[in-house]
Write a protein that binds this DNA or RNA. Structure first.
Lengths: 338, 338
DNA sequence: CTTCGCGTTGGTATCGTTAACAGTTCGTCG
DNA sequence: CGACGAACTGTTAACGATACCAACGCGAAG
């Protein structure tokens, strides 16, 4: 016997019909114990395993128990945590996870979505790349449930699980201002990605609220890697009016910045990271909980898959400003004698 | 129209048979341009997408263009890098990746493998958990290609892509000895996982070669998390005969150890990690390249899927001892005046 | 002794696609 | 002008599983 044995093979081995094998394999009660035992013996003998593909084809109305997870890049620690948590929930729900990386490329994102739906995923968890996500509408209409995590998608009505990026950054910048900083540099990723846009919005809001004019020379957008962040920091500090504090818009940029950041410059990073407290000074961060984000997103997704048809919701989870030292380095306008 | 349109729907819309639609969708040449255009218009109008499930069912002899990736835990940075690289190669080859986490639990590993094969994956990349992997034999016989990455699997003839863990650790320990250390502590993960066993083997070999008796009180096995590593370090240093140097068997343990490690103790970690060079002192590491490991594994897997039937190979990739400072902290037997 | 019903079991059609084969309509060549 | 192949299109029967319905045996009820 080469290739997988089928129900027919098992049926022949046990001397029953394929239908009876199906009943036994699916644990339906209406099979005589003696018959069931014979079938089970045949299953074991042949190493039979039900073919999920054929099963899903026949049972088109039932869920396929496969979901798709589409992230920028699984290698990113934040995304890896999201993936792990989503996989965990899926497993508990008896589903498999198909994974795909968009590398923040809208075209690639579309391709991966197509590959997912072609395999009849029940739903999709995604961190939307740039651009409109209207193209997901047909998939939704055809029954694929969609949940956005970490970022909102434009042009799409879908459940969304995020943190309040803008408010979190606003708080952090206020914190820097309170410690006597006026020239606060900003290191941001691609602005066309929702999260980065929100964070930048928070940065400007905090400055505006404090009556500080935003100096465009202190703002570096579109940074895509740790080395590019390091370069940006070096350039900023060497410039005419250097910043006395810096905010890094996400973990990668923080790592790059920290490679070249001299002491004396205040620093806050979006996203917590391992060993942040062992650096000198320990790094103040805006922490979010990727596991909670992904777990919530997956829970929402499965609720949808199991029939929840209420209007799309946006769940906002909390962030926390963890003061460790680097964010409390005093600036030139710090109050004395405290 | 609710639900996905099928070829039959497209055929009706275009006024042709389903077979002709199939031919157009698959780009077979033998369709009149006018007909093909009509079909393509119908495809666009209905938003038709080929159903990969049905297709794979019919074309049982062709690959399903889906592979399975089974790791301990995607959230682990090393595993995340592996997953990302594997997904990348798969995408280039036109395949999707199903992902699963074993959490180092052999039972869970088996379940995930079953879920994979039930979905007809063409092949499997896995970081084997503890225990025999003989159970994978039937899947192999039925045609599923299997490649182990990072670790070897016992009881299974399969391609394997690893580094020489034992030699790498041996070199690191020799390095510590050369810097004057005799009491070298070892922080290791679960010994029943191949990698950890190998690393411990290298540790003992280096001591033996230097004529140093291994002190069991300096060895902590079975550490599963950063906090447990931190505790172990604290306990070791508080003990009667404390170590003057420490070796951490993998990244997580290194992070935990570094949270509590006082200066003056030499330290080497297996696996490089971000910001290692920004700690004080910068951390000496044994670096391996997870991307290269996974890329190689995926390449081997696809070669198998495409018909390579040569005997199973083991590919050993290089490691590098990156001297940054923590591994060069002199020990009590260091030569003076260098 | 017939009939009913229950507990089991099997037959048939079908999910969406495609391999294999069977037409059909032409144009072309002898 | 009829036959023959080329180009195109359709029909049928699977792939492996299951929903639905029919049928079987057999004890109980009438």
């Amino acid at each position: 016997m080469v290739g997988r044995p089928t129900m027919k093979d098992v049926a022949a081995e046990a001397g029953v019909s394929a239908m009876t094998v199906s009943r036994v394999v699916n644990g339906e009660g209406s099979v005589a114990p003696r018959t069931a035992a014979r079938v089970e013996a045949a299953v074991r003998k042949l190493g039979y395993q039900r073919d999920e593909l054929a099963r899903q084809l026949r049972r088109a109305d039932q869920p396929s128990r496969t979901i798709g997870l589409l992230v920028d890049n699984v290698a990113d620690p934040f995304m890896a945590a999201v993936a792990s948590a989503a996989e965990d929930v899926a497993r508990r729900r008896g589903s498999m996870v198909l994974i795909g990386s968009s590398r923040a490329d809208p075209r690639r994102e579309r391709e991966v979505v197509a590959a997912f739906t072609a395999r009849r995923v029940d739903g999709l968890i995604l961190t939307p790349a740039a651009g409109s996500h209207r193209f997901l509408r047909p998939a939704q209409v055809q029954g694929t449930k969609i949940v956005c995590v970490d970022r909102a998608a434009s042009g799409l009505a879908a459940d969304t699980v995020v943190v309040d990026n803008s408010a979190a950054v606003e708080e952090a910048v206020r914190h820097l201002i309170a410690h006597g900083h006026r020239r606060i540099g900003y290191l941001g990723g691609r602005q066309d990605i929702w999260t980065n846009g929100e964070r930048h919005r928070g940065y400007r809001a905090a400055l505006r609220a404090a009556g500080i004019a935003a100096d465009p020379r202190l703002i570096r957008h579109g940074l895509r890697s740790a080395p590019s962040a390091a370069e940006a920091v070096t350039a900023l500090l060497a410039s005419a009016g250097p910043p006395t504090a810096l905010l890094a818009g996400h973990e990668n940029l923080a790592v790059g910045a920290l490679m070249v950041l001299p002491p004396g410059i205040a620093f806050i990073a979006f996203d917590d990271f391992p060993l942040a407290e062992r650096l000198t000074p320990p790094v103040t961060v805006i922490a979010q909980d990727p596991v909670a984000l992904a777990t919530t997103a997956a829970d929402v997704l499965f609720a949808r898959i199991h029939g929840d048809t209420s209007p799309p919701r946006t769940v906002v989870l909390p962030t926390e400003l963890i003061r460790r030292g680097s964010g409390e380095v005093p600036g030139p306008f710090a109050e004395q004698g405290r």
